[in-house]
């Protein structure tokens, strides 16, 4: 088993996915270990909620397993596809928050996060996520892919299947919108002291 896993270690993502579709669970294990941390990180940064991010990650991978038999290697990279699916799933979750007043969003109980600095971080990440929820969805996706995932504009264009010009427009307008939403909370989020 170890030998089999080792043989897959350097294989491209698409090759692993196709091997999985042929019934090779070792390929699925290697692919999961490779992509799941990135999917979870993307979902966490957008949602700022560990449980929701895990659900989204599981859902994104489930969709990958479903599409595996029909995967065409020349169409898209697995990572690009996962960025797209994860962003869409997160946007769905953020949309549901729109109807909930900010005051009613419960802070998840976490006894380990008791230090003031950690609470401050948590408040900032939640504020960012809630601000993304209030933005137009395409802008929120473009901004998160650019500024949270660090993707280049051509990469974002691939993920969102739009032109470079649209990416530039969406990220610029999105960042302005985000700033507008958050500027009133500067003191609350502790940025006056920084």
């Amino acid at each position: 088993m170890t030998t089999q896993l080792g043989s897959w270690r350097d294989a491209p993502d698409a090759a692993l996915l196709l091997a999985y579709a042929q019934g090779d669970m070792d390929a699925a294990r290697v692919l999961t270990a490779r992509v799941l941390p990135r999917v979870l990180a993307q979902a966490t940064r957008m949602l700022s909620d560990r449980a929701e991010a895990e659900d989204v990650s599981q859902d994104a991978l489930m969709r990958l397993w479903k599409i595996a038999p029909d995967w065409r290697q020349d169409e898209a990279q697995v990572t690009t596809w996962l960025y797209r699916v994860t962003a869409n799933l997160c946007t769905d979750r953020l949309r549901k928050r729109r109807n909930v007043p900010l005051d009613e969003i419960a802070e998840p109980a976490d006894p380990q996060r008791s230090a003031p600095g950690q609470l401050q971080d948590k408040a900032r990440f939640s504020a960012l996520s809630d601000a993304l929820a209030q933005m137009p969805e395409r802008q929120a996706q473009a901004v998160s892919l650019r500024h949270l995932e660090g993707l280049s504009n051509p990469e974002i264009a691939d993920v969102m299947n739009i032109s470079l010009r649209s990416v530039e427009s969406l990220t610029a307008r999105g960042k302005r919108a985000l700033t507008g939403i958050l500027q009133g909370r500067k003191a609350e989020l502790g940025y006056d002291d920084d």
Binding site: Y20, M25, A28, R29, T32, A33, L36, P37, L40, A41, T44, R45, R50, A53, E54, S57, Q58, L61, M62, W65, D121, R124, F125, A127, L128, H147, L148, G150, K175, L178, T179, L182, Q183, K186, L189, Y191, D194
Partner: peptide
């Protein structure tokens, strides 16, 4: 402020829990 917030948010890289890994592989 926004740039600082982005930079801080990018540092969030949670470890994949064993439970999540088990769920994903069970789905597969």
């Amino acid at each position: 402020m926004i740039d600082a917030l982005f930079a801080q948010a990018r540092t969030q890289s949670p470890a994949v829990s064993d439970d999540l890994m088990v769920r994903v592989l069970a789905d597969a």
